[in-house]
Nucleic acid binder design. Structure first.
Lengths: 240, 240
DNA sequence: TCTGAAATTATGTCTATACATTAATGAGCG
DNA sequence: CGCTCATTAATGTATAGACATAATTTCAGA
């Protein structure tokens, strides 16, 4: 076995916890005991246990010891769709059609707009995403001009503003709301749907630090689009 | 400064990467350089960088060095609703009404059922979630009896099987599909909706290791329910 | 009996060092 | 020119020990 020792210790306990042999709340041996069990230094044991803490499988308390964590998993990772990539991956052609573009100051009647841009100017982009010339989604996007000054130059005919933004202005915070709504008059017309058809509605706000970047509202053709979220115990994105 | 040094190093680089100062592919200083920069031992630097590897922010290659990781998957955390908690938190009464319960062997015509339970038996639970006696969602849930033998004893009248399962059988892998669908005859009747009303459809499969646990399909009243997903630089449990 | 201080114990951080492993580099040879 | 092989620069694993920190337990004094 060329497997590192700390990894062996880690996976030993991962297996015992996942198998149910060690139940939530059960106490693990102390580092001193594990040093003897595996005949190694304390740092090695510590590294193994730290990884299990990072994976959320155990909790450690000074003086008290190390315990199997209560199952806490109430969340999973939702991939944010890059529509263009997904459409292309399905072997279809993609294009984006802009049908409105205006620059304006936040309308006090819309608290969203003030929240996004404060006193600064906004640009509003409205367009439709197509897969093989069939409309897939309509989006209305507000972008804060102070956060993204370069945007005035971009045309967004054919390419999606979402993908452009991702490349040029990475966000650090985001919030997404997902709901099912009936198509209103405008949406139905843009997507060639019957009035009241089920649409997947996605509203996302993104920030970079404290500064609002964009607020987008997308209506997907219900029958043509799913969101997928996954959670796996694979070595996972957070150290915590 | 009571913050550990390795944590300070970690968060320094996390900030520089998230802010865009260090672009994907950019090379970080070597451990030797960082030892000098932070005036500390190599193990301390190593611990900080290991955490960033675990977080997926950097890649490390022997002899070559440490680099900002390539295209970060843009994903965010989706909270999995515990319906009972959410309804209670909104100040409403919650109850669950079971209208069907049967035990059977997987139907070969439904690949889902075989995939879930293999040769073993399944239990099918169908019921409706209520908030203040108004139907909020209807769910159909398949559970593998071999994964959850205790379930035969539970009645699930009033309490939701989802919450029961979470407490008794924590999962390790899950996949969720989210879509907008029109209410069919059955769903419309159960939720007191017009035929074709927009519903948020959530389908979730969960596993424990390789063993399938449950497959649930939920239809939410579109006008009454949202899912929320968030991403923030908020630290996970182990960080300060 | 209650209270607060001290001892105890387990984890948390850090150092300094050693050797292993991997892969980019470059020198020498055909 | 292109191949092979040794060199070497970087990370990866591990040790042994020191001191820090937190929480529980114990115990002395009011």
């Amino acid at each position: 076995m060329k497997q590192p020792l700390h990894e062996r210790i880690r996976s030993d306990f991962e297996a015992r916890i996942l198998s149910g042999e060690l139940l939530p709340g059960a106490r693990l041996p102390t580092e001193l005991e594990l040093m003897r069990d595996y005949d190694c230094a304390r740092m090695t044991v510590s590294k193994a246990l730290s990884a299990l803490v990072a994976a959320g499988l155990i909790d450690r308390r000074k003086r008290a010891g190390t315990f199997v964590a209560r199952p806490r998993v109430h969340s999973m990772v939702l991939d944010i769709p890059d529509l263009e990539q997904e459409v292309l991956q399905r072997g279809q052609r993609y294009h984006f059609e802009l049908f409105n573009r205006e620059v304006r100051t936040p309308d006090p009647a819309h608290p969203d707009e003030a929240a996004l841009a404060g006193e600064g100017e906004l640009i509003l982009l409205e367009g439709v995403h197509f897969a093989d010339d069939v409309p897939l989604a309509v989006e209305a996007r507000l972008i804060s001009l102070s956060a993204v000054p370069d945007i005035a130059a971009s045309a967004f005919q054919g390419a999606s503003p979402g993908a452009w933004l991702l490349k040029h202005v990475p966000w650090t915070e985001a919030e997404t709301r997902i709901a099912a709504v009936p198509a209103d008059r405008n949406v139905a017309a843009r997507l060639h749907l019957a009035l009241g058809s089920a649409c997947l509605f996605v509203e996302r706000r993104t920030w970079r630090g404290d500064e609002g970047i964009t607020l987008v509202r997308q209506h997907f053709v219900g029958s043509a689009y799913d969101l997928i979220a996954r959670f796996g115990s694979a070595r996972r994105p957070s150290d915590g």
